[in-house]
Simulated scan of single mutants.
Amino acid sequence: MRNIYYLILGIVLTICCTACNKEWEDEQYSYMASFKANVNAQGVTTTYVRFKPGGVVKYDLPVIMSGSTLTGKSHTIHFGLDPDTLERLNIEQYGHREELYFQQLPNKYYSMPESVEMPAGECLTTLPIEFKLDETLDQADKWVLPIQILDDQSYDYQANLRKYYRRAMLRLLPFNDYSGTYDAAQYRIFLKPDVKNPFTISSQRAFVVDDRTIFIYAGTRDIDYLDRKQYKVFIRFPEKGTDSKLLEVWSDNPEIELELDEKKACTFTMNEEMDELKPYLKKIYITLYLYYSFKDYTTVPGTKLEYVVEGSLAMQRNLNTLIPDEDQQIQW
């Protein structure tokens, strides 16, 4: 009888040992293609691209193949535009206020391949997008390039089922040496004749016009005002290598009657230094001093409200000099 027990025990042990395998070496999930494109509160991915007039700037959008193991074969991943999701996003964010909608970037400003290869044994590749920007692309509009990973039964992969993984809403923000978000703690907007109780704003965004020109919005306006295009204030910096600190300031809309004061010139300073604790980190400080007046003719129909704007806008741009790619080097 004892031998029978030993025999049964041996059989059970044999079955158990045979059944055990290294399950961690088997694929635990599905191979799914995804974008690595983190979204902000508006559901878009901020995409910074250096402005180069007449030149091409390459942007590499990361594409990931998910799974617990590396795929043993290559996959051809296909891409296309996704205007339907962009339309839905606009409605969710802004309702029926179409003047605030994100706009799809016109085809002439970019090019990208229809597919890329995910090599065998790899889980990361990039979708190369080439942007060709010029002064005709008005940054008063919110340009977005909506891309999706295409899915089909004939493809040898599956697109990720989650919206923000299979789609990338690239919110294009070209930059030059002077664009960005300026601190406006020392910036004052006076409604004449009251010069004792100024309006204030916390920050002012400067948008690209060309390689040495930016524009801001007059007074308290920002990109979410319906009439913002009528209140652009252009600022041009002098050629590099010159000692001039004077700024050229003007408006393209004569109706706001933008005026400068010869006694209070618009100027700027620009300095840089290396961080004391992080020697690889370069800090660039830009300060603008502005003084101008303008008239608001849209807030109260039939009435022009005169404003005087005076003060400083300051920005600090940090550059990680260890990173070769400029769009990744700047710590936005």
Rank of each mutant, 00 (worst) to 15 (best):
R188C: 11
I149Q: 00
M118S: 08
G302T: 11
K240S: 15
M274C: 09
L86R: 03
V233H: 00
R317D: 09
D141L: 12
S115L: 04
L81V: 09
V309A: 07
G121P: 01
V195H: 10
E130T: 06
D84Y: 00
I64A: 11
Y182N: 14
Y59H: 08
E262P: 10
Y285C: 10
K278I: 06
P53D: 05
E99K: 13
K245R: 14
V63N: 03
D82L: 00
I189T: 02
Q28A: 12
D151M: 07
G67S: 14
E255W: 05
M32A: 11
I323H: 06
P301R: 07
H96Y: 11
E259M: 14
V116C: 08
Y182M: 10
V208T: 05
D134E: 01
M274A: 13
I214P: 03
R97D: 06
G219L: 08
D227G: 04
R188W: 10
C123Q: 15
S202V: 13
M1R: 08
V309K: 02
L191I: 12
I64W: 12
Y291P: 04
I256R: 01
I77A: 06
Q328L: 15
L137M: 07
K283H: 00
G55P: 04
Q103K: 15
T200W: 04
L260P: 03
C266R: 03
V12M: 14
S68T: 15
M118D: 04
D327H: 12
E135A: 15
T69F: 01
M315D: 00
L127A: 02
E262M: 11
L127K: 06
L127N: 04
S30M: 11
K264N: 13
F190S: 05
L319P: 01
F79D: 00
T71H: 12
Y231V: 02
W24S: 12
R205F: 06
L70N: 13
F190D: 05
D261Y: 12
K58C: 02
I77Q: 04
R167I: 15
M1C: 06
G302P: 08
R212F: 04
T69E: 07
L7I: 07
Y31P: 06
V233K: 01
D252P: 01
T200K: 14
Q139R: 11
I223L: 15
L305D: 05
T14V: 11
I91E: 11
K58L: 09
Y5G: 04
L89Q: 02
Y178I: 05
D141T: 08
F207M: 10
E98R: 05
E239M: 14
N107L: 10
V144K: 03
V63H: 02
Q139A: 14
R50L: 12
R2D: 07
S111N: 10
P53G: 00
D194A: 07
R212L: 01
F234A: 10
I330G: 06
K245Q: 13
S312G: 03
K263T: 14
E117R: 09
Y94Q: 01
A140S: 14
R228E: 00
D224Y: 15
E27H: 03
P238V: 07
T298K: 07
K58H: 03
D243P: 04
Q148F: 04
G241F: 07
N3L: 12
T303K: 11
Q230R: 15
V209S: 08
V39C: 00
A206Y: 01
K132R: 13
D152G: 08
Q329V: 07
G311C: 07
F102D: 06
T125A: 08
Y165R: 04
